[in-house]
Design a protein around this nucleic acid. Sequence first.
RNA 1: GAGCCCGUGGUCUAGCGGUCAAGACGCCAGCCUUACACGCUGGAUAUCCCCGGUUCGAUCCCGGGCGGGCUCACCA
Length: 781
Amino acid sequence: MLDKRFSQAIEEKWQDEWEKRGTYTFHGLDDRKVYSIDTPPPFTSGELHMGHALSYAYFDFVARYKRMQGFNVYYPQGWDTQGFPTETKVEKKYGRLPREEFKQKCVDWTNQMIAKMKDSMIRMGFSPDWEHQYRTLDEDYHRKVQLSLHIMYDKNMIYRDEHPVFWCYKCHSALAKTDTEDLERDALLNHVIFKGPNDGDLIIATTRPELMYACVAVMYHPDDKRYKNLEGKEVTTALGKKVPVFPDKDVDKEYGTGLLMVCTFGDKQDIVWAYRHKLPVISILDRHGKLTGTGEFDGLKPAVAKEKIIEKFKAEGKIVKQETLPQVVKVHDRCKTPVEYAMSKQWFADITKHRDEIKAMAREVQWVPDFGINYLDDWADSVEWDWVISRQRHFGTPIPFYYCEKCGETAKADSLPFYPDKAPEKECKCGGKMKPEESVLDCWVDSSITPLIAAGWPDREGWERLYPSALRPQGVEIIRTWAFYTIYRSGIGITGKKPWDVILLNGNVLAPDGRKMSKSLGNVISPMDLLNEYTADAIRQWAAMSGAMAKDRPFSYEDIKFSKSFLNKVWNASKFVNQNLEGYDSTKPELKLVDKWMMEKLNKTIEECTDGMETYEFHRCIRKLQDFFWHDFCDDYLEYVKYRTYGEDDESKKAAQYVLHEVLYSFIKMLAPISPHISEEIYHEMFGGKEGDTINFTPWPKVGNRFPQEYEKVEPMRELVSQIRQAKAAAKISQGAEIDLYSPKIELDPEMIEEVKKISRIREIKEGEFKVEKIEEEKEA
RNA sequence: GAGCCCGUGGUCUAGCGGUCAAGACGCCAGCCUUACACGCUGGAUAUCCCCGGUUCGAUCCCGGGCGGGCUCACCA
């Protein structure tokens, strides 16, 4: 018996049952075709947010659908564990600790977060294989990341070099761009006099005059007539140094005077120019972020030096104009200190050499939706320099190399996994000491081999059958990182083969008001808060209804309320069908026209729904199911056959029961990938688990006998039934009451006319203007 | 500024070379018709952003504009 209501309690019952039985465990390769999913390892923040709920629901639909299609689905669960946010949290809680102790606290904290997130994922009904998990902090994961780097190092794809990086002088670390945020402020633009080749005045505009000691060039736009005569010449800075002049397309003619100085390094554009024009590098900031090599301003911080040098130029009459302009500077998100660019020895991966290969390999992958590949192309085309893979942090995968302090020579670590504090020093060919590298890797280095990790590379027997993955689901916003780096490393660097067959892109979930969800706006909705009121099956249905892929969508209470109502409908209709199935036997009876109409409707639904799942258009699938079940099955067919299931005619009753049984069974199967809990419960309570102990592995419904002609015959009847309903309502006659119908000649199949009489409780049909007339009870008596 | 996506009843979406342009939520009216009031039966509400073009015919295709979103670059 089904409970009175479908509820979260029923969901939890099945979640526990699935976990206990290991329902979704991968049991190794067999004869079946494998379908492997390169699932996104969430960063272990502890919180499962709406974005997770949406995108994880998408590939959970796929996994469940493919299982029912007979695939051997491999759906491991990973965790992205290392990185600055964890260090920040741990540091906040425990303060500064010795390196080893600190790392251990990071691990402990991460494990707590994993436990919390795993529980949330189970409550959402996600079906990853909990026997096959990976964590990026595991020694085994480290070993594989390090091995992958050794392979790439042997192919000359990894190197150590001096290069400008984002640097926080307060925290003494290189930063990833993602560790920075924008700060708007006013800047003073100074117009300073330089001397041209013929000693004429040239005015350049700068907000950072204190960097002039590191000035290495002056630039203008190639179309700028004012400065064309300077090409190939040298000019003299306000400090008396001669520097070359270059035309460059990135100069804005309208900004300032259209003439600018390039320093090492005022901003990112300076770095681009330094590389493009092969300019010399002058490091003007020391390791503490103070000026050096200037003489009079050494030891000052840039902000102080700026004021002093402006005073100096003013005194010398070299500043002709000053204006205040709004400016955006990058600051370290943690300490809000403006970020500088500093030269430093870092490890690099040679992405710029491979951009065309990466783009080519991306074309071997099917992008869903197809325009997603544009994001990758744009990024590949705009990458200015190689990927800085080293970070001066603690909680990360160690870089498995040595470098020579004397000559700069590098060498691979001898054994993996490699941890620098346990590694011996080596001797270099040059006689110098080789030191184990102490920096750690950018987290994207870890996550850019997830399809290999998932496959069990390089140790698991038959890992090649699990690589490429069948599916990579991920957010659009990390195409330039996760997708790009995965193709570069797993694809180009390691295997030479594309990492996945299909990449499925999802957008973000916005707040109901269409703005980004954020703590500061106070508009964050957590899936965990919705569970009790709406159930996981309803949240999952909301996800399915959330429209096109790769598109941001506001969260919709309307949709989730509708989902909940729909589940309620499914529940109650199932109870009702169950009541009417008394005496059901599975022998196939002679079907009436309406029965064939219903079976044909089911066929059409199976086609549409299957197609929707195959093309990842989950909204098409769920909308079709909702429309079909609610309106065609409940509102129409159930009403059409009530008189038969209540009645005495055995043949007719059996046919109706057969169809009720078939349709409901096929329906809950098709609903199972999206809303697995309610389907599982009905499967067991009503169908006795007849095809195995879980609906999740029953075969996906197939289109049965077609009845196109019968279908067409029944369609007009539905219109007539509806008209009679309306007429009854208008005449305030109860729908259950018996009537006489007056009507002009009815153009219907005779069997249909009989059907209508039964369905609409008509005693007699009489010629006349269309109307219904209630049969008075006293007349009958 | 560059690239991409989008612009459909009050709201959120679906759809498509010819349909009375579909659904949900909301709104209105009437119904407790032996599963469901988280329900049932009806109803109102759309210049399908604007201007051109292609076409026998465009909401759908093409060009331009306006508006919104995302990613990137944001400026010496």
